[in-house]
Amino acid sequence: MTAAANLSVDQDIIYPDSDGQPMSDNTKQFEWIVTIKGGLDALYKDDPNVFVAGDLLWYPVYGNNKLRVAPDTMVAFGRPKGYRGSYKQWLEDNIAPQVVFEILSPGNTLKEMAKKLEFYEVYSVEEYYLYDLDKNDLRIWNRVEGRLTVVEVTPSWVSPRLGIRFELNSETMQIYRPDGRPFATYVELDRQRETAEQHASDAQQRAETAEKRAEELAAKLRALGIDPDA
């Protein structure tokens, strides 16, 4: 079959933008997915060639619409930001997402997660993070000499690709940007914004009060025949 015929056949293949599965099974899982995806969006907001997505189907092989996976969050360096219905790797300079995150839910089976690990192994993921919310257990695989290798997780780990730091305490996981600021939920970010606005308002009020007092003092000095500007 000629290349033109192959292309014609492939044009008839539909690559669905949805696998019919929910993004999350519960509120905690959803919050973590959104927090990680949003934190990475913010981290790379000024880099036009870092693409971050959440729950987006990734098709690694041209012509095969059965081979696919939807990481909870994925990061592709070297690819532009912008809308995609799915990530078709052959349309992305054949660049595979280098970093993927999965937040384990009660609906995930061992067989399903083993298949995902195999997929990420075969299709060149460099870093794979799997977080079990209920057990507060973080598992990390890092590509070493062409293979995804389990990382011995200590209370702290820094991503070679992202530069972000993962810390585990007795209750939960915290992720920190390279500048030390923590990833935060929308509620936490809104509270931080409100606090910053209140601090700015207080500072403005203090400045206005100081200026008023200075004007009152200057007026008193002038009444005494003293030039405050001399």
Rank of each mutant, 00 (worst) to 15 (best):
L43E: 04
G163F: 00
Q89T: 13
V75P: 14
I13V: 15
R181M: 13
I13R: 02
M1L: 14
T35F: 01
T149D: 10
F101K: 00
D93P: 06
A214T: 11
A196I: 06
G85D: 02
D55G: 07
A196Y: 13
T172Y: 15
I140K: 09
F183H: 04
G107P: 00
A42W: 11
Y123M: 08
E188L: 00
T109A: 04
A214P: 08
V61A: 01
F101N: 05
Y59M: 03
D19W: 03
G82M: 00
K115H: 08
Y176C: 07
Y83K: 12
D41G: 12
Y83Q: 10
R213K: 08
R206Y: 03
L110H: 10
R68Q: 09
Y123W: 06
D25V: 01
S18Y: 06
E145S: 15
Y120Q: 03
T73V: 04
E31T: 14
V50C: 12
V150Y: 10
P106Q: 02
I103W: 03
T172K: 15
P80N: 15
T185C: 00
E112K: 07
T35W: 07
G107F: 02
E215N: 12
Y87V: 05
D134A: 15
P228T: 13
K88E: 13
D179P: 01
L221V: 13
Y59D: 04
V99C: 07
V34K: 04
T149Q: 10
V61S: 04
S124R: 12
D93K: 09
W58F: 14
I103D: 05
P228M: 05
L91T: 13
Y186S: 11
G63W: 05
E211P: 09
Y15V: 07
V187K: 12
G20K: 02
Y44W: 13
T2H: 06
V61H: 04
R68K: 09
V69S: 04
N142L: 15
D10C: 02
Q192E: 12
E126F: 10
V122D: 05
R213C: 10
T27V: 13
S18I: 10
R161P: 04
Y176S: 09
G20L: 05
R143P: 03
M74T: 09
K28L: 06
A196G: 01
S124C: 09
Q29V: 00
M23T: 14
R206K: 07
V9A: 13
F119E: 07
A4D: 05
Q174F: 10
Y128I: 14
D190A: 12
F119I: 10
L67C: 01
R147P: 11
A207R: 15
D46N: 15
E216L: 14
F77V: 03
R177A: 12
A4H: 04
V9T: 14
K81R: 03
V99L: 06
V187H: 08
G225M: 03
S170Y: 12
D202G: 06
S24N: 01
Q89M: 07
A218I: 12
P155E: 02
K212M: 12
L57R: 11
E171H: 14
G163R: 11
E171W: 11
V69M: 08
I175F: 01
L110N: 15
E92D: 15
N136W: 08
P71I: 07
Q98K: 12
Q198F: 13
V52Y: 06
Y62G: 07
P160E: 01
L189N: 02
P155W: 04
D227I: 00
L43I: 05
